[in-house]
Structure formats: structure tokens, C-alpha cells
């Protein structure tokens, strides 16, 4: 009887988003804006993808270009890294799905050239630790049932047409989510002769979740914001 064996570990599921418990390792730190005096004069130059930018007396971070390479953390540059709430960004708050989708959202995942790590994080969302079914979020195999097209990877030449076909096959209303920095801006692969500069080149994007890969809780934030269960202010807090 697997059912009884499955009970032996007790409840693992996070109470998130009702409360935010400390779950060490679930959401590792990311770079945050740091005063230039602390980050060091060379900070901007160490970033391989141009995610760091000197803005006034601060070094600002464009998370959509950050690939978590840790270079501005270890070594000469000393950017501050912290667990920021800035996990997902809503690009078009006016077009929220509305109340109808508050408790049920069907998501079609499309791999457009991901290295496999973002797909794994999506898979972890269904593990007992996150169990997104409890929030009414379901991964569906068919685009006809899907409300959200969730895309990972920089959109390669080979997946582009299949991705567009999937989008076409979805009924209105539909929303598009770019998950992972590669899907957001194409870094570190594109733009190139075979990859786009992220999903925005190909489809209108509603929500972006930066990170390489974004941890499950960040992807969850993106989905919750789409469902109207998490406001833009909460996302940024």
C-alpha cells in the first residue's frame, strides 16, 4: 500500500503564499542594487551579460539579464546578494485575467531551448513541497485547455514554429509567461543566428520571471500574479 508509505514523512507542503516561512535553499539570493562604493569600481565590468549598470551612485541590476553566475558576488566585485521579493514582473497589469481564473489556471509548458534546469524547477512545482494543485494551478498537455502559455528557453529557430502553432491553438483569452532569464532576454545564448532575444521577439509577453533558473517559488509568484492573487506591490516587496 503506497498510500500509507506516502504518509510517513508528514506534511512537507509550504504554506506559501499564506505565509512566508524560512525555507533555506528554496530561494537562493540574487544580486540587488548596491552603492558603487561597496560594490567596487569594477563591478559593472565583471557581468558577462550586461545585467549590471551604473546608475548614479548605485550599481543597478537588470534581473532579466542575470544568469546567476555568481561572478559579481565572489571575486573582485562585491555586489550585495539577497533574497529579493522581485521574483516576477507584470508587464501589462491592465490585462489581468480577472476573477474567473482566481482559483483555476491551466498552464501549457513549452520548451523553446531550455537547458533542462528550468523544466526541472517547473516539475518541482508539482512535488509535495509546493503542490501547486492546491492553488488550482494545473499543467495541461493540450493547448486547447490552456489559459497560459509558459515558455522556457531563448526560442530557437527549430522550436519557433511549434511555439507559434501552440499559441494559435489556445482559445481566447490567453496569456503568455516567459520563465527564466533565457526566455526573458535570450541570455547567455542569444540573440544569435539561431536564437531570438527572448520570447518577446516572438509573442506578446504578459509576465516575466527572471532567474537562471527561477526557483519554484518565483515561478509560483508569476502564476499567482497572473491569477490576481498577488499584486504588483506584493511582488516587489
Amino acid at each position: 500500500m503506497w498510500t500509507t508509505k506516502g504518509l510517513t514523512r508528514g506534511i512537507l507542503t509550504t504554506p506559501y503564499p499564506r505565509s512566508r516561512p524560512a525555507e533555506p535553499g528554496a530561494r537562493p539570493a540574487r544580486p540587488v542594487a548596491t552603492p558603487t562604493s561597496e560594490a567596487g569600481p569594477a563591478a559593472v565590468g565583471v557581468c558577462p551579460t550586461g545585467a549590471l549598470e551604473a546608475r548614479g551612485d548605485q550599481v543597478a541590476v537588470d534581473l532579466g539579464r542575470c544568469i546567476d553566475c555568481q561572478r559579481c558576488r565572489r571575486g573582485d566585485a562585491k555586489m550585495e546578494w539577497a533574497d529579493t521579493g522581485q521574483a516576477a514582473l507584470h508587464l501589462s497589469p491592465a490585462d489581468l485575467p480577472g476573477r474567473a481564473f482566481r482559483h483555476s489556471l491551466h498552464v501549457r509548458v513549452v520548451d523553446a531551448g531550455d537547458g533542462g534546469e528550468t523544466l526541472r524547477e517547473l516539475k518541482q512545482l508539482t512535488s509535495p513541497y509546493y503542490a501547486v494543485h492546491r492553488l488550482g494551478i494545473f499543467f495541461t498537455p493540450t493547448p486547447r485547455d490552456a489559459d497560459v502559455l509558459l515558455v522556457v528557453g531563448p526560442v530557437t529557430q527549430g522550436t519557433r514554429q511549434a511555439l507559434l502553432d501552440t499559441y494559435e491553438a489556445m482559445p481566447e483569452p490567453k496569456w503568455v509567461m516567459a520563465v527564466g532569464s533565457t526566455a526573458v532576454t535570450g541570455v547567455p545564448f542569444g540573440p544569435s543566428f539561431t536564437t531570438a532575444a527572448g520570447l518577446g521577439d516572438v509573442l506578446p509577453v504578459d509576465v516575466v520571471v527572471p532567474g537562471n533558473p527561477p526557483p519554484p517559488l518565483a515561478i509560483l509568484d508569476g502564476l499567482l500574479s497572473l491569477m490576481g492573487r498577488m499584486s504588483a506591490e506584493e511582488l516587489l516587496s
Binding site: G25, I67, N212
Partner: peptide
């Protein structure tokens, strides 16, 4: 991995 290496997939 996230706790000891700062990255869940041991990048960097």
C-alpha cells in the same frame, strides 16, 4: 545545493 553553493543547480 542552494544552501551550500548559493545555486540550486550548482552553477557558478
Amino acid at each position: 545545493s542552494g544552501r551550500v553553493a548559493g545555486h540550486r543547480y550548482l552553477f557558478g
